[in-house]
């Protein structure tokens, strides 16, 4: 028997999607092989890392390590975002709308104005991520879409209950969206089908939900892998959207991460790296130290 190159026959290419506007944009997706399989096909580009910034000060039990990097800027999303870009070299910012979870009435106009301020202050494109409360997210994201018209934001999460309203606003003002479903490829596809009935296919990113290492990451890993298979091996048009992972916030919730800085840095780096291996095209990270580890690792891969 002779050794032969068992290369996969690929049938699909992950949709390319541009986040941002002229002069400050990032492209994600475009691969037509399994993750990092540049030996057998086209891996157009490496995944992109976005750094997370909160639009309201994080709670007291926020990890000490993160506070050591950002304690001086947590009061100002603009300064926080600038620090990520200027000091830590972030390619993209993900603004997390923590303010929506605060007690009391939410001033949607103020939230949107803050997002606009951050967008204007930085030289990189932006993701805007709600808190996961579907009503609060809908109200805020719609207003943000309007106020930030033309910025080419990536807005989410859209879930099956609020997808129409947010997607319509995103379409009107030229943004892309993140469709989120809980760790289930069938639900992910269903959501994409609903969305693409009126929304452009090439402006959708899938969020299959991230869980941290040791806290359910096995589920995320396999769902990411399966989604990627269906896209590139089976060529299913409804599954070719790029995948977003959210390992930063999830990892730093782990007990191990909070207790010990070195654990935390590795916890976030490893959760991220594993999900990139499973198929994430963009990952949102929290710690600059973890990001450095992941980038160094990715630097050892070439694209093809």
């Amino acid at each position: 028997m002779q050794i032969s190159d068992f290369f996969e026959k690929y049938k699909g290419t992950v949709q390319e999607l541009t986040i941002g506007k002229e002069g400050k944009s990032v492209i994600i997706g475009g691969d037509s092989v399994l993750p990092f399989h540049s030996f057998e096909g086209t891996m157009t580009r490496l995944p992109v890392i976005a750094m997370e910034v909160w639009d309201a000060p994080p709670p007291e039990n926020w990890a000490e390590h993160l506070r050591s990097h950002f304690g001086d800027v947590v009061g100002s999303p603009v300064l926080w975002a600038k620090k990520c870009v200027e000091t830590y070299g972030a390619e993209m910012i993900c603004l997390y709308l923590a303010s929506l979870a605060e007690d009391g009435e939410v001033d949607v106009a103020a939230v949107a104005a803050r997002v606009k301020e951050v967008a204007d202050a930085i030289t990189v494109p932006m993701i805007v991520y709600g808190v996961g409360d579907k009503d609060a997210d809908t109200a805020a994201l719609k207003e943000i879409a309007r106020v930030c018209a033309g910025e080419g934001l990536l807005l989410g999460p859209l879930v099956k209950e609020n997808l129409n309203e947010i997607a319509e606003a995103a379409m009107e003002y030229g943004h892309s969206v993140i469709a989120q479903s809980p760790l289930d490829i069938n639900l992910a596809k269903e959501l994409n089908i609903k969305l693409t009935k009126f929304f452009p296919k090439d402006k959708i990113v899938m969020d299959p939900m991230t869980s941290a290492l040791g806290y359910g990451m096995d589920y995320s890993f396999s769902v990411f892998e399966r989604l990627k298979h269906v896209a590139v091996l089976f060529g299913d048009d409804m599954m070719k959207m790029p995948i977003i992972a959210n390992p930063g916030r999830e990892s730093w919730r782990a007990k191990e991460a909070k207790l010990n800085e070195q654990h935390g840095i590795l916890w976030e780096a490893m959760t991220t790296m594993t999900l990139l291996l499973a198929g994430a095209n963009v990952a949102i990270m929290a710690s600059p130290d973890s990001m450095k580890l992941v980038k160094k690792m990715m630097g050892q891969f070439t694209v093809s």
């Binding site: 290492l213 096995d218 890993f221 191990e256 070195q262 654990h263 590795l266 490893m270």
Partner: peptide, 15 residues
């Protein structure tokens, strides 16, 4: 370093 090994062991358990 126990921190390194705990990480790898947890990953292994997940996979």
């Amino acid at each position: 370093d126990p921190a390194d090994i705990l990480l790898l062991i947890t990953l292994r358990l997940n996979i």
